[in-house]
C-alpha cells in the first residue's frame, strides 16, 4: 500500500479528478494549502501597490492505494496537472503501513478500496 500526496495548481483540480476517475480511482481527499517552490510566489497589487513573495494557493490531493493502482494514479495526476510551466507541483509517494476502515474494522488492502 502507498500513500500518494500531490501538491497541484488549484485550477488543475478538476482535470486531475477527471483523470483519476478515468483510472477508476475515486477515493481522494483534497485540501487547500499555501506554499511555494522555486518561483517564490505570486505578484499581487493592492491599491496600486505591488507585492511579491506571497505564498501561493495550492491544492493537496491525498490518495491511499494498493500497489497495482500506484502507477495509474501517478499517471492520472500527471495527465491532469501538467501544464509544463513552473508551479505545476509535486507528487510524493510513501509506504503506507496500515489502513483501517472505521465502519467495519477491516484492515490492510481490503480496507483501502
Amino acid at each position: 500500500m502507498k500513500l500518494i500526496v500531490a501538491i497541484i495548481q488549484p485550477y488543475r483540480l478538476e482535470e486531475v479528478k477527471k483523470a483519476l476517475y478515468a483510472e477508476e480511482v475515486h477515493l481522494i481527499t483534497v485540501s487547500e494549502v499555501l506554499g511555494h517552490g522555486r518561483q517564490k510566489g505570486v505578484t499581487e497589487y493592492y491599491r496600486g501597490v505591488r507585492e511579491t513573495g506571497n505564498l501561493l494557493r495550492k491544492v493537496r490531493v491525498e490518495i491511499a492505494v494498493n500497489e497495482n493502482f500506484v502507477e495509474p494514479t501517478i499517471k492520472a495526476i500527471m495527465k491532469g496537472a501538467q501544464t509544463g510551466k513552473v508551479g505545476d507541483g509535486k507528487i510524493f509517494i510513501m509506504d503506507l503501513k496500515e489502513c483501517v476502515r472505521i465502519r467495519t474494522g477491516e484492515r490492510g488492502p481490503e480496507a483501502i478500496g
Binding site: R12, E32, V33, E44
Partner: peptide, 21 residues
C-alpha cells in the same frame, strides 16, 4: 480558458477576496 480556471479575481485583477493564512 486557463484564466477562467484560475478565477477572474486573480487572473484579471491580481487580487484575492479571501486569505487562508
Amino acid at each position: 480558458e486557463q484564466d477562467e480556471s484560475i478565477g477572474l479575481d486573480l487572473a484579471q485583477h491580481r487580487e484575492n477576496a479571501y486569505t487562508l493564512l
